[in-house]
């Protein structure tokens, strides 16, 4: 009797531990479904309210991303030349750019369905790939994969692949060009300028 009770206590304990350390595939699924559920109910996002889409992404998606790692990946070998302060600045501007541009995708949401591919990981893995597929009527399914790493704060996404194209490393050559022309600060300035022009577009759309 006592043994059974102890077993039960341990089982509950382990179950709770498992919940705290949520599996990466479960995390991707939970966040995706939560965001899509909100978009499905939100007429103004569906009608192209970019600002609202950005707020949604900021609140629900961004906490699960590791932007410092993402930016390092985008910059490549020049990353080590940047001071910690420059790295923070770069990551901040890059985050703004990615959020601005890809929140847009939410405003063109129409009946897409996300299918989660079978996921395998070994017990000690700290770096995994979660594979999904976006299905939409009239178009081929699009592969959408997330690279996640395990940090103290839980699993964080550090790369996103759409149809095999990394939204992060696709910047490497453009960033390299800017660094060759104006150093790390030149790159920070270039992304900041881009963000500023996008903000201008956003304000214009708001005024309409």
């Amino acid at each position: 009797m006592m043994n059974k009770l102890i077993a039960l206590v341990f089982a509950t304990l382990f179950a709770n531990l498992a919940l705290a350390q949520e599996a990466p595939d479960a995390l991707v699924k939970q966040v995706t479904e939560e965001v899509l559920e909100i978009v499905r109910k939100d007429r103004s996002i569906q009608n192209g309210d970019a600002k609202k889409a950005i707020d949604l992404v900021d609140a629900k998606v961004i906490p699960h991303f590791n932007f410092l790692h993402m930016t390092a990946l985008a910059v490549g070998k020049d990353w080590r030349k940047a001071s910690p302060q420059q790295q923070q600045q770069l990551a901040g501007e890059f985050k703004t750019l990615l959020v601005r541009t890809y929140s847009n995708a939410l405003t063109s949401y129409k009946d897409q369905k996300v299918v989660y591919k079978p996921f395998r990981m070994n017990a000690g893995d700290t770096d995994v790939l979660v594979r999904t597929e976006v299905h939409q009527p009239g178009n081929k399914p699009v592969q959408l994969d997330y690279s996640l790493e395990k940090l103290d704060a839980g699993w964080k996404v550090y790369d996103v692949n759409v149809a095999g194209i990394s939204l992060v490393t696709n910047y490497r050559d453009q960033f390299g060009q800017e660094i060759r022309n104006g150093g790390i600060d030149g790159l920070i300035k270039a992304i900041a300028a881009k963000n500023k022009s996008l903000e201008g577009n956003l304000a214009k759309a708001d005024g309409k």
């Binding site: 601005r100 847009n104 939204l167 910047y171 453009q174 960033f175 060009q177």
Partner: peptide, 13 residues
């Protein structure tokens, strides 16, 4: 909106 240099962005993609 995403590209700093549209040509390079399209090529690398």
């Amino acid at each position: 909106e995403a590209a700093l240099d549209k040509y390079a962005y399209v090529r690398d993609a």
